[in-house]
Amino acid sequence: MGLFEDEFYSTKPSRRSARVRQSGRHPYRGLALMVAAALIVGSGTTLLVTRQLAPKSSPLVITEANNPRPTATPDPDSDPVVEAVSRVQTAVVSVITTDVKEDLVQNGGMGSGVIFKKEDGKALVVTNNHVIETGNTYEVVLADGTHREAKLVGSDAYTDLAVLSMKDDGIKTVAEFGDSDKLRVGETAIAIGNPLGLSFSHTITKGIISSKQQTIPVYLGQNGDVRWEMEVIQTDAPINHGNSGGALINLKGQVIGINSMKISDTGVEGLGFAIPANSAKPVLDTLVKEGKIKRPKMGIYSEDLQPFTIDFDVLKLPKSVTKGVVVTDVADPAKSAGLVAKDVIVQLDQQEIDSTMELRKYLFYKKKIGDKLDVTFYREGKKEKVTLTLSELD
């Protein structure tokens, strides 16, 4: 069994408590800096997923006017990879994050980013949330080595995306997003970033699209107590620490993904992951406009109903109820609606709920802040129902 260190998202539950916080009073301000994580695949094999952060050393439609293409006749002897890289390379930047408190530098880190838009005298840079969440002061290093102060526009832990802004003086290249839904398994994929820091900035690695969609389990929060799943592109283009937030491009020079993580273990090679461009674009658009992604909350803390973790005699459940979500604590709006600890939620509206993950996905994908939500649950062996109004997740 292998073990890896995931500096940001963990696929291993908190050692502190099995309780998974669905919504409400989240006890963290950022994600874990150093936590163990494991992704179980295959027959008894444990692989390791790591976030690629190096140590410190309007809708998203880009027009030809913003990013003009060469008009010269292409050289028949030219390399298509070289041509693709030349179109976007200068839009890829390094992102330096520093945690400054009382004029003292506490820690820092480095990742990559991509200039994806220019507006109102600002150049906007997409990077990973786990690149920027380790600090409060940001700096962008351009392809020519110029350092520029940057400000955080917005970030989102669930999608692992963030947007920085800086002055657009001299910025000539803006990356163009491609259609990640049209990716083909086996097509060329090129990663651009700064693995291991500035010494290797704008390093180019090449591979293929290994899978158009993979689901990677992650744990968010300082203690790894909020479980989520990310839908990502799998590639064998080498991705290393510092590539986080950099570009994964196609042979047209279009950004098809934002590099985010890899599986790392002895004997494992070529398992890197990127956030699909089509998933990133609406998130970035919202972050630019509102600074955050607004999501609904019920106001419960919960854990999955599992025979090896739950005392069924205490819950007094019918023998037929084997799946659901056990409420461990409540806050508003669930508290005001009458839910209490030890209630076992089995249905939201007309949707059966077997786990906390299903509950969270139903809320985030099917409901909005202010919507009514019917909650069916068991209390003391009796099936009951309440209706609550969803509020905003902090």
Rank of each mutant, 00 (worst) to 15 (best):
Q222N: 09
N223C: 00
T215R: 14
I209Y: 10
Q222K: 11
D169T: 15
V232E: 15
S180T: 08
D236P: 12
S211E: 04
K212N: 15
Y219M: 14
I216T: 02
T205E: 02
V232G: 03
T205S: 14
I209G: 07
I208A: 11
K172H: 13
V218Y: 01
D169V: 11
D236F: 12
V174D: 02
Q222S: 13
E176W: 05
T235N: 12
V218Q: 01
D181S: 15
G221K: 10
K212E: 02
G197Y: 10
D168I: 04
K167T: 14
P195E: 03
D179S: 11
D181K: 15
D169Q: 14
D168T: 02
I171L: 01
K167Q: 13
N194P: 02
Q214Y: 07
G178L: 13
A175C: 03
I171W: 09
D181W: 08
G186H: 08
T215H: 08
Q222Y: 07
N194R: 02
V226A: 01
I233S: 09
K172F: 00
I171G: 07
V174S: 04
V218H: 00
G207K: 09
A189N: 12
L196F: 15
T188K: 14
V232K: 14
P217E: 01
E187M: 14
A175T: 06
N194H: 09
I216Q: 05
R184P: 00
T215P: 00
K172V: 03
S201P: 00
G221P: 10
A175I: 06
F177G: 01
W228G: 02
V232S: 06
G221L: 10
G221F: 12
F177H: 06
Y219L: 07
T188W: 14
G207M: 06
D181G: 11
V232I: 15
V226G: 00
A189W: 13
Q213A: 13
H202P: 01
S201H: 06
A189K: 08
L198T: 09
L220M: 14
D168W: 10
G170F: 11
I233M: 09
I204D: 00
G193E: 06
E231L: 10
V174G: 04
Q213T: 08
I208W: 06
G197T: 02
